[in-house]
Simulated assay, not measured.
Amino acid sequence: MKVRILGVGMGPQHVTAEVGAALRTCDYVVAAAKSADDDLLAVRRAIAEASGVEVVPVPDPERDRDDPADYPRAVAAWHQARVAAYESVLRERGGTAAFLVWGDPSLYDSTIRIVDGLSERLPIDYDVLPGISAPQVLAAAHRIVLHPVGRPVHLTTGRRLRQSIAAGQTNLCVMLNAHLDLAGLDDWSIWWGANLGTDTQSLVAGRVGEVLEEIEAARIRVRREAGWVMDVYLLRAPTGRSS
């Protein structure tokens, strides 16, 4: 058996020629189905159908999303449940399976870890092909560079934003935002985007104190229009503040 982990950006328009060619070598796509009307599963179907590849939906195991006390342990348990669910599909079907990963598999995605777990249970070989990441699309959409001259950019999640700022980070690209926690950062600059590269893309930029309400309204609108919202933003401290 073979598994191909393919980065597909934010949808069919971001599938690279390399990934498209790899997908056409696969017998089927394994995809998590989070609900009966999973909009993100529909996008995966569109990508697979363009290459004539069947999608095998797998009900996604339940996960504790209410900020559990031991977050790493909760995620690890969820990953193990996913491994077990996918294992049954691979054992039954064999052949070459693909996993289509939003953005790029290297950034805040656990597909590689899950397939590592599968490889401990099954005789599979796997490879990974990169995709266009959300920070790349955000920077292009706003026509910006993610970092000032000679300075780093810190990649983190909404869950760890406050911890990162407390540690002295002043230029942050923030992903996986269950909600926006920007209180007290009114003078910081933000470049925000949701559902990047799709028909429901929304962009806002400015001082946090001036545009926060606009961003919150845009998140609600995008979720209503698309059925889902994935947002990412660059947050930068006022000029002159150092880490």
Rank of each mutant, 00 (worst) to 15 (best):
L176N: 02
D104T: 10
A194P: 01
L185F: 04
A97Y: 03
T200F: 08
G131T: 08
R113P: 01
V101W: 03
L185W: 02
G184T: 10
D199H: 12
V204F: 07
S164E: 15
L185M: 12
R162L: 13
M175L: 15
H147I: 02
L196A: 02
S133W: 02
T200D: 15
D127Y: 09
G117Q: 12
L129A: 13
T200P: 00
D125S: 14
P105Q: 11
I132R: 01
G193R: 04
Q163H: 13
D104L: 05
T200V: 11
V208Y: 00
A205F: 04
L138S: 03
R113E: 14
G150R: 12
L129D: 05
L129K: 05
L155E: 03
R207Q: 14
W102M: 09
L203A: 11
T156S: 12
L138I: 09
R160H: 09
G131I: 06
L118C: 08
P135H: 08
G209D: 09
G103I: 00
Y108V: 04
E87A: 15
A141F: 02
M175Y: 03
L185D: 03
T157C: 10
L180N: 09
S202P: 01
S119M: 10
L100S: 04
G197H: 12
R143W: 06
D187L: 10
D109S: 12
T200I: 04
V115E: 01
V89G: 04
I144F: 08
Q201T: 14
G206E: 06
V149L: 14
L176V: 06
E214P: 02
L129T: 07
G193T: 05
A140R: 14
D186K: 06
V208D: 06
A178V: 08
A178P: 12
P130D: 10
W102E: 05
Q136Y: 02
T198E: 04
R159T: 06
V204G: 01
G94F: 11
R143L: 13
P148C: 04
Y86P: 01
